[in-house]
């Protein structure tokens, strides 16, 4: 037998709508209940089939002998393709803002999500366990959707271009993404640490953008914040597993955080775009995000150090 360990087997039950019964949909492998719950969400509700999820260790199920089997749960509201919802862009009054700065801001937000999603796409079929391959792709798809929304808006403001043209026909130097998301994939710890730092940033940023006076940015952010909260929850779990797992995993995640730290200053550096955006109440100054971000990140690590000692 192999010495490999793919985790334990869990059975998954999904409730389609509130009030409906939970039905068995299948199984998955996970090492702990948090991972099992999140994998169940990523695997069995990809097409909006879920309202509630139960998970139970397969070994805890007492099964009847020689049963004829219960009917398998088939999602009834299956979709041909789960279209990411494209946000309809309302016409707002942009007269009092320098249009170029709003475009620049949308490119910044769109490009960062675009490139991070690209890095995740590069990781396809390389995750440590199959469940994780599916889960991280969900994050990538969310980010790609956010990127498309921001780039659509930038294209509309610019005129005479499209999100696709902005993605594929811009010169490298014209991209506005953060350097943090450009760092190439190395190991799982690095990919995860990068994701964690970005997830914290996205959570603080999109929470502020829920006060945006720009209707489109507000609309995109309302959708994005739900996705980002989940992303952070997920990367939190993994940081915990790696930090408290083995000596090797602890060393790797620590090294990854150390290596990435130098890229985080840029997240909070203001330029003329930030100032114009802030003045018009369309978004926060980048520098204003730093305290909240530090609180999340540093408190998290502190809490973590207390528990590991």
């Amino acid at each position: 037998m192999s010495s490999d360990d793919q985790g334990i087997l869990w059975e998954v039950f999904i409730q389609v709508k509130a009030g409906r019964p939970y039905k068995h949909v299948g199984s998955l492998h996970a090492y702990d209940k948090e991972m099992a719950m999140k994998s169940a969400r990523d695997l069995y509700t990809r097409r909006n089939e879920g309202n509630g999820i139960w998970i139970v260790k397969a070994e805890d199920i007492v099964s009847s002998e020689a049963s004829d089997g219960e009917s398998f749960f088939d999602p009834s509201n299956d979709k041909v393709y789960r279209h990411p919802t494209f946000y309809k862009i309302p016409d707002g009054d942009k007269a009092y803002l320098m249009k170029n700065e709003l475009i620049d801001y949308c490119l910044r937000l769109g490009d960062s999500s675009l490139i991070l999603s690209h890095r995740i796409a590069e990781y396809c079929s390389k995750a440590p366990i199959l469940e994780e391959d599916l889960a991280i792709t969900n994050v990538g798809l969310d980010l790609l959707g956010q990127a498309e929304n921001f780039l659509n808006y930038a294209a509309k403001l610019k005129g005479d271009t499209t999100a696709d043209l902005l993605t594929f026909k811009r010169r490298e130097g014209d991209f506005r993404c953060l350097h943090l998301v450009q760092t190439p994939n190395t190991d799982f710890a690095f990919i995860l640490a990068r994701q964690f730092l970005m997830d914290c940033y996205h959570q603080v940023l999109f929470n502020k953008l829920l006060n945006s006076k720009d209707e489109t940015i507000l609309g995109i952010s309302k959708k994005a914040i739900k996705e980002v909260n989940y992303h952070l929850d997920r990367s939190n779990d993994w940081i915990k597993r790696l930090g408290l797992g083995t000596k090797e995993s602890n060393k790797r995640i620590q090294n990854a955080i150390n290596d990435l730290w130098m890229y985080t200053d840029e997240l909070f550096t203001d330029n003329s775009t930030d100032i114009a955006i802030d003045k018009n109440n369309f978004g926060p100054l980048s520098s204003s995000l730093k305290n909240d971000w530090s609180d999340i990140v540093v408190n998290y690590f502190k809490d973590f150090r207390n528990r590991s000692s």
Binding site: D4, D5, Q6, G7, Y31, D32, M35, K126, A127, P128, I129, D187, F188, K240, R241, L242, L244, G245, T246, E248, S249, R252
Partner: peptide
């Protein structure tokens, strides 16, 4: 490449 991650997840649980 993923072996150490699986071991860490196992050790954590």
């Amino acid at each position: 490449d993923g072996k150490w991650v699986r071991e860490a997840a196992k050790a954590y649980s």
